[in-house]
Design a protein around this nucleic acid. Structure first.
Lengths: 109, 109
DNA sequence: CAAGCCAACTAGGTTAACTATGTTGCACAG
DNA sequence: CTGTGCAACATAGTTAACCTAGTTGGCTTG
């Protein structure tokens, strides 16, 4: 599932989960699959899955409850600050990927 | 430096650095000490320092540049809701276009 | 002197092992 | 039936090792 695009695996997984949350296929209150389960689904190591979940936790999209699972937060309040940091993260990523693509293209002249 | 307060070490370090950034003792453009240096200063393992920096990166407070260091970002201004939705639409578009280009490139090996 | 290589530093990504701790459900003893 | 304990599962945190890769400065060689 995780592709070799130069985009690190833990961010690809975070992106995908974020997409599912934004898209509603993972609704507020829903639990994410367990980290072990996610590792299987994405064919990734447990470590990168933990990193991915950590990103979403930092972004405030998700709350982990020890012993239970990781749950999608209510998207209500955290409007601007979190959104902004997420957007900035996305912008940073796009810039990096663009730079990579551009350099690849220039090499092929 | 990292105390046994129940608050995990990587968050204590992230808190402290965030404080220094918000307080201006680390100004925009300034480099953070290297991860090795931070590990010494906080008497923490390299791993927790990396996690701490990762948090700040995710929050967008800081930008890492491979080979150089980690630099404090320029503090962004709050944006209006309309701007946000427009920016999000633009980001979505950019992401799709980039994904197309990337897959084209990867197919051509 | 100039070019280029190389060593030392930088961040970043991945994996694995171990620990701690919380939750849940089931089996077994009373 | 009650409840107690235990096994299985969950997140969370810490550490360490290994690899990639960009930057910089100095030294060596031509």
């Amino acid at each position: 599932m995780v592709k070799n695009t130069g985009r690190p695996g833990y961010l690809q997984i975070a992106d995908d989960l974020r997409e599912k949350i934004r898209g509603g296929s993972l609704a507020p209150g829903d639990p994410l699959p367990s980290t072990a389960r996610l590792a299987e689904e994405y064919d990734a190591s447990l470590s990168v899955v933990k990193l991915a979940v950590g990103v979403l936790r930092t972004e405030g999209l998700v709350i982990g409850q020890q012993g239970k699972g990781v749950f999608v937060r209510d998207a209500g309040e955290p409007a601007s600050p979190d959104e902004l940091t997420e957007i900035r993260a996305t912008l940073r990523d796009l810039s990096e990927r663009l730079a990579r693509v551009e350099s690849t293209l220039s090499e092929r002249g």
